[in-house]
Amino acid sequence: MEQFLEASEYIDWRNPEILKQSNLLSDGSIGDEAIAKRCFEFVRDEIKHSWDFQLNPVTCKASDVLRHGTGYCYAKSHLLAALLRANGIPAGLCYQRLTITDEPPFCLHGLNAVYLDNIGWYRIDARGNKEGVSAQYIPPQEQLAFSVSQKGEYDLPEIWSKPLSVVVDCLTRHQDCLEVANNLPDVELWASV
């Protein structure tokens, strides 16, 4: 479980701004479930999704997402993991492989898993709600932003402690939100999936 509490280059929870925000979110909350809910709702509702709002700069590091108030789903998941870990709550990164227009091409969508004592690993999606998207924190029930519904789409079952390299490469190589949108990361899946 230690790997899901570690600070890293992109989940830089020891950053003073992250620590300050994590303390604000945990203040007055009792128990990991309540703290996790406040962290989730903060990232979902207060950090703008880069594409939805056409915002720059492109962020990847959790502290940059917090500082600029914007990020793609992947970057928002880095911030949520950082806020949870700063509060001593194990958090990982999860991905779905989805289409944007109900047909190929495919791209990854980033979300989180949080470890809650009474439930175990519980997936949450702080992408940001909008018309047709309503992600909620209602453990033990999952209510993610997107469901897998088209041929070739998958919920990837792994929980990662660090972001996938294709995600980091996309977010660090491209300079504005349109470039990211035109080059969204994807992974090849084994034929048995």
Rank of each mutant, 00 (worst) to 15 (best):
N118I: 08
E131P: 00
I47R: 06
D102S: 11
Q143T: 02
I35P: 13
K48E: 12
R38D: 13
Y137E: 05
T59K: 09
E41C: 10
Q141W: 05
N183F: 05
R97K: 15
S8W: 13
L55V: 01
D27Y: 14
D169I: 05
V114E: 00
A86L: 07
A82L: 07
L80K: 00
C73M: 05
L111Y: 12
V65F: 03
V65G: 08
F40E: 01
E2G: 06
S22N: 04
L98K: 09
L189Y: 08
H78E: 07
W160H: 15
V166C: 15
S165T: 13
Q175S: 14
F4W: 05
A34L: 11
I100F: 09
Y74N: 08
E158C: 03
Y72F: 15
D176Y: 15
F40D: 02
T172D: 02
S147D: 00
R85A: 07
A34V: 14
Y10T: 02
A86S: 15
V167Y: 01
E41K: 03
C60P: 10
I138S: 07
A86R: 10
F106K: 11
P16Q: 06
S22E: 04
R173M: 05
Q150W: 13
V43F: 00
A91C: 13
A191H: 06
S29E: 13
A135Y: 09
A34R: 13
F146A: 12
E103N: 14
R97Y: 07
D32N: 14
H68Y: 15
L108Q: 13
A181E: 12
S192F: 04
A86N: 11
K130C: 15
H109N: 03
S26C: 06
I89F: 10
K37Y: 13
A135R: 09
K151D: 10
S50I: 11
H109I: 08
C73R: 01
V65W: 03
L66V: 14
D32I: 11
